[in-house]
Design a protein around this nucleic acid. Structure first.
Length: 476
RNA sequence: GACCCCAUCGUCUAGCGGUUAGGACACGACCCUUUCAAGGUUGAGACACGGGUUCGAUUCCCGUUGGGGUCACCA
């Protein structure tokens, strides 16, 4: 029984998008589940489109998702010499040949193939031509001499048996005219050299696998096990675009999602384990298998993502949330929290985190704790702060002055007594009080807010609201 | 256009010849309740269509329709 080796092989032409993240996750989970290795290879053979920024963005995203890879990331470009060496071997054995067709000729062939309604594009004009016919001064590409007849079949762990007639498969280019290797060549060689046993990748490569398999056969190597996972679509079922959320992983981070949320969500998108929904990473490693991967494409659903994130936010520790919230609060308030404010945040978080879907929301919901002086009420809060409410708050203020211990229990007792004495329901005083303390109609429980705010700040905010909204003393 | 893949509630899915077709998100109602969440109870909601095979098809086969992918000296 050989060790399982999986790999994630993104091309560094942009950020790590959500589909790539899921591919990485599946590879990582399968390797960890099997006690094998998870490798990372950067497919940077396209020198024009590959950038260092993209490479570091991919690293950052994987690290944030906590998908650790084994060993150093391999640069495919750095292995060009090895790729060329394999092509030499292929040439010697007659599995490859030089092709001098010009771009114009190729375009013409493409047109003709299209008109004829065939899939095979290249007409093989240099396939068996005598090398002495080679035009001078033109650098050839090296093509693979693919079988013309028969069929190629792969046994895919997700899609099942897939067969295609060889006459639909082209003689793929192995080496470009400038001598650089193409992706088709590089993946095959690198996967082999890296000892990859399981190729788990997006469905868009299923057709490529058929071509690659023939190359592997020609080289006399062993095929890896394939698992082509269905693509992720937007909410409308169309191909994922920026509009839908084909965003980089770092965008999700900025939107306030937790890495464990993304892992859990992405896992369930296209993979199932009975009725289980909340699956932590340890459990995912224990359960993950290729057989559980669904065959049909799935759609991204932000409502479910939000719900899941709410779960993990509630589960997160206050200490961690304080740290995670820092950048969001900085953006919101335009400044960092003072040590006292950070303490207040920590005290408020147990109540706050129960009612937020994202870190962004959590930061917003906490902001009334950090305003300078009494909060300015929003529209709904203004409606609560009537003249009557102002009078009520003024009277409550008097009672609150006498509270000995500033705790939820004693505060609640005072409020209930007050409501009874005023012959009103608790809600009739609690709502204006909430508006006075938070400037909103929605917040954690008022007793919790008063406790976290502390006696002085609470009384100050009540007094301010009572004064502003007093029909006699009020400024308006 | 050719080739390949896919098809269960709006969405993610369970189901692997016989089920009142299950769960989750979202949606409605109710409960809880100082608001909002969370939680609890509950309601509505699906086997794309047409042929077979079979005693029996959501499940197996074929076709139709619909969706997706691939057809580069990109990956």
């Amino acid at each position: 029984m050989t060790e399982v080796v999986t790999r994630f092989a993104p091309s560094p032409t942009g950020y790590l998008h959500i589909g790539g993240a899921r591919t990485a996750l599946f590879n990582w989970l399968f390797a960890r589940h099997s006690g094998g290795r998870f490798l990372l290879r950067i497919e940077d053979t396209d020198r024009v489109r590959s950038t260092d920024d993209a490479v570091s963005a991919i690293f950052d995203s994987l690290k944030w998702l906590e998908l650790d890879w084994d060993g150093d990331a391999v640069s495919q470009f750095s292995r060009a010499a090895r790729h060329a060496e394999i092509v030499e071997e292929l040439l010697e054995k007659g599995h490859a040949y030089r092709c001098y067709a010009s771009p114009e000729e190729l375009a013409e062939m493409r047109e003709q193939a299209r008109a004829r309604g065939t899939t095979r594009l290249y007409d093989g004009r240099w396939r068996d031509r005598d090398p002495s016919d080679a035009p001078v001064g033109i650098a050839p590409v090296i093509r693979f001499r693919a079988p013309l007849t028969g069929v190629t079949t792969i046994e895919d762990n997700v899609q099942g048996q897939v067969t295609v007639k060889n006459d639909a498969l082209d003689d793929i280019v192995l080496l470009r005219a400038d001598g650089s290797p193409t992706y088709m060549l590089a993946v095959v060689v690198d996967d082999h050299d890296m000892g990859v046993t399981h190729v788990i990748r997006g469905d868009e490569h299923l057709n490529n696998a058929l071509r690659q398999v023939n190359l592997i056969e020609a080289l006399g190597w062993q095929r890896p096990t394939y698992a082509h996972i269905p693509l992720i679509h937007g909410a409308d079922g169309a191909k994922l675009s920026k509009r839908h959320g084909a965003l980089g992983v770092e965008a999700y981070r900025e939107m306030g999602y937790l890495p464990e949320t993304l892992r859990n969500y992405l896992l369930r998108l296209g993979w199932g384990h009975g009725d289980d929904e909340i699956i932590d990473t340890a459990q995912a490693i224990a359960w993950f298998d290729l057989g559980g991967i669904g065959k049909s494409p799935s759609r991204l659903d932000f409502a479910k993502l939000d719900n899941l994130n709410g779960h993990y936010v509630r589960e997160a520790s206050v200490e961690r949330l304080v740290v995670l919230l820092a950048p969001h609060l900085l953006r919101l308030l335009g400044r960092v929290l003072s040590p006292e404010e950070a303490q207040r945040l920590a005290a408020a978080l147990p109540d706050l985190k129960e009612r937020a879907k994202t870190l962004v929301e959590l930061a917003e919901n906490s902001s009334f704790y950090f305003c300078d002086g009494p909060p300015s009420p929003d529209e709904k809060a203004k409606k609560l702060l009537t003249a009557d409410a102002g009078l009520l708050l003024a009277r409550l203020h008097q009672h609150l002055l006498e509270v000995a211990t500033w705790s939820n229990a004693s505060l609640e007792a005072v409020l209930r007594e007050f409501a009874a004495a005023e012959q009103i329901k608790l809600g009739q005083i609690a709502q204006p009080l909430r508006a006075a303390l938070t400037g909103r109609a929605v917040s954690p429980g008022v007793f919790d807010v008063m406790r976290v705010l502390g006696r002085e700040e609470t009384l100050g905010r009540i007094k301010a609201a009572a004064t502003t909204n007093n029909p006699v003393l009020g400024s308006q």
